[in-house]
């Protein structure tokens, strides 16, 4: 049986004093934290980081990059590699044309199934598909989670370069 209270009055007083000291220490630490700058965000307002954007390379909503010289105006050559690697089978592409003119006429991504793993972006041979730092994709209807060709093309219009993560070296501070 574990002893929770002291044997005699002296012990009891000592425990009480230790308890009171713990409370004072706790109050001191919470007091210090009261005057430290806050870190909490009120979500839609984002008080502390009003223009925070995730870095390029963040795995958010999808976009298809455009290339005006190609049929369909997209870089995509409908090679179906992204459809094949997707672990959740949430990409569905209908290709059209032969050889150089091959392009998708239908391109569906069901972001409700997607696990945002970046494999489709990585596998694409022409860097046609990418994920933007846009993370505010919540919606009230499951159908709205399905991105079709027009949505993807529209989203990709403003992205000039493929948003690949640049392999920038970061070596030991003492080194290079």
């Amino acid at each position: 049986m574990r002893k929770r209270y002291g044997d005699n009055l002296w012990d009891l007083l000592r425990i009480l004093a230790a308890g009171a000291w713990s409370i004072l220490v706790g109050l001191y630490i919470t007091g210090i934290n009261l005057i430290r700058p806050g870190v909490c965000e009120r979500y839609p307002r984002r008080d502390h980081r009003p223009d925070y954007q995730p870095r390029p390379g963040y795995r958010g909503d999808f976009a298809l990059l455009s290339d005006p010289e190609r049929p369909g105006g997209l870089r995509c050559i409908a090679c179906l590699q992204c459809q094949n690697i997707c672990p959740d089978q949430c990409i569905h592409i209908t290709p059209e044309g032969k050889g150089k003119d091959r392009h998708p006429v239908q391109f569906r991504i069901d972001t409700g199934l997607c696990q945002f793993c970046w494999l489709c972006v990585e596998v694409c041979p022409v860097a046609a598909i990418t994920m933007t730092p846009d993370y505010e994709t919540a919606t009230d209807q499951p159908q709205k989670l399905i991105r079709d060709l027009d949505t993807l093309r529209e989203r990709g219009r403003n992205i000039p370069e493929p948003q690949r993560v640049e392999p920038v070296g970061c070596v030991a501070d003492g080194g290079a």
């Binding site: 870095r55 390379g57 970046w118 990585e122 993560v165 640049e166 392999p167 920038v168 070296g169 970061c170 030991a172 501070d173």
Partner: peptide, 9 residues
Amino acid sequence: RNDLPPGFC
């Protein structure tokens, strides 16, 4: 996936 981004260290 990629090397460490700038500013990471």
